[in-house]
C-alpha cells in the first residue's frame, strides 16, 4: 500500500501526543515483556495486510494469525523466531537468535499467486515518458518487465546477536545478523527504541527502528541482472541500504483469554532499495486488527 508523506507525519504526531498525554497513566513495563515458562498458544482472527513493495506483487493479506511460543530455560521459540538468551539481568538481555528475513516474504509463492490473479492492477506505467513531453522526470529511470520471469528469490534465514536494554518504560535494542541459508551471504542490523504505555487493560506501544541491509542482501532480492533484464527490467545493482520504520500497537485485554490486538507499521525504503526496478512503492503501510484468543 502506497502512503503519502503525511502518514509518516501523522504517526509522529501520534507518538508525541501519546508521549505527553499518556505518561501520567503509564505503569511498569515489566509484565508486557515477560512470559511464563512453558508453551503458550493463541490464534487471532481479523483483517490486515503486509505491504509488498515489489512491482506487480500484491500486498499480503492477513486474516488469521497463530501464536506459538515456547519458553524453556534460556531458550525461546516465538512463531518463526528461535532465541537463546544466555546473558540477562534486571533490565538487559543479550540473545542469539534465528529468524526469517522479511524481504524473502515479498517473493513467496503465495504473493506471486495473488499477483497473477491481479494482472491488470492498474498501476501506472513506469516506463520513461517520451522525450519532449515537457515534465522534468526524476533522475532514476526504471524499466519494467514481466515480474514472473525474474530469477527465483528464496526465503532466507538470518541468525545473529541482539542486545536489549530496558530503561523505565523504554526499550532500546540493537541486533546484527548474518544469513544462515547461504543464498546471498547478506548481513542485516537494526537499532530501535520502543515506548510502552500500560494503563488498566490498555497497552500502547510506539516504536522507531532503523534497519541496515548489506549490499549482498539488497542485490539478491532487489538487484536486476541478466535474467531480470531478459524479462524486460532495467539493470540494477543493489547497494547497502536502510529501512526506516515507525510502529504503533494497541491492545486491549478483555480477560485472560480474549484480547483485541492491532498493529500498524509505516516503512520507508531508502534509495538503495527504492531505486530498484523491481520496487514499486518506497513508502509502505502494513496493518492488522483483530481479536485474539489465548489458550
Amino acid at each position: 500500500m502506497t502512503v503519502l508523506g503525511s502518514c509518516s507525519l501523522g504517526l509522529r504526531v501520534l507518538f508525541l501526543i501519546s508521549a505527553f498525554c499518556l505518561s501520567p497513566m503509564a505503569s511498569s513495563t515489566d509484565s508486557a515483556y515477560l512470559a511464563d515458562e512453558g508453551v503458550s498458544l493463541g490464534v487471532s482472527l481479523g483483517y490486515g495486510q503486509l505491504a509488498n513493495p515489489v512491482y506487480k506483487k500484491d500486498d499480503i493479506p492477513l486474516y488469521a494469525l497463530p501464536r506459538i511460543e515456547v519458553f524453556a530455560g534460556d531458550f525461546s521459540f516465538a512463531n518463526t523466531q528461535f532465541a537463546w538468551t544466555p546473558v540477562w539481568g534486571d533490565n538487559y538481555q543479550v540473545s542469539l537468535f534465528t529468524q526469517l528475513n522479511e524481504d524473502g516474504l515479498y517473493f513467496t509463492k503465495h504473493s506471486a499467486i495473488l499477483a497473477a490473479v491481479r494482472t491488470a492492477s492498474g498501476r501506472p506505467s513506469m516506463t520513461p515518458p517520451p522525450p519532449g513531453s515537457g515534465v522534468e522526470t526524476p533522475v532514476v529511470i526504471k524499466r519494467r518487465g514481466d515480474i514472473t520471469k525474474i530469477s527465483k528469490r528464496k526465503l532466507s534465514a538470518m541468525s545473529g546477536i541482539e542486545a536489549i536494554v530496558d530503561w523505565q518504560n523504554w526499550r532500546f535494542s540493537a541486533y546484527w545478523s548474518m544469513e544462515l541459508t547461504n543464498y546471498h551471504k547478506g548481513l542485516q542490523g537494526a537499532l530501535s527504541a520502543q515506548r510502552l504505555f500500560l494503563f488498566d487493560q490498555h497497552l500502547v506501544l510506539l516504536g522507531v527502528e532503523l534497519q541496515h541491509l548489506s549490499a549482498g542482501l539488497v542485490d539478491y532480492y532487489y538487484g536486476s541482472a541478466l535474467q531480470e533484464m531478459g524479462a524486460g527490467f532495467s539493470p540494477f545493482l543493489g547497494h547497502s541500504s536502510q529501512k526506516y520504520n515507525l510502529k504503533a500497537s494497541y491492545q486491549y485485554q478483555f480477560n485472560q483469554q480474549w484480547q483485541f490486538i492491532s498493529d500498524i507499521k509505516y516503512q520507508r525504503l531508502s534509495s538503495g532499495i527504492a531505486d530498484s526496478p523491481l520496487i514499486n512503492d518506497s513508502n509502505l503501510l502494513s496493518f492488522y486488527a483483530g481479536f485474539a484468543w489465548n489458550f
Binding site: 508486557a32 515483556y33 515477560l34 511464563d36 515458562e37 519458553f71 540477562w88 537468535f97
Partner: peptide, 15 residues
C-alpha cells in the same frame, strides 16, 4: 514461584 521469561517483543507483536 513461576519463572517469568524475558521476551524479545510483546506478545502479539505482528510487524
Amino acid at each position: 514461584q513461576h519463572v517469568k521469561k524475558r521476551r524479545r517483543d510483546i506478545a502479539w507483536s505482528i510487524f
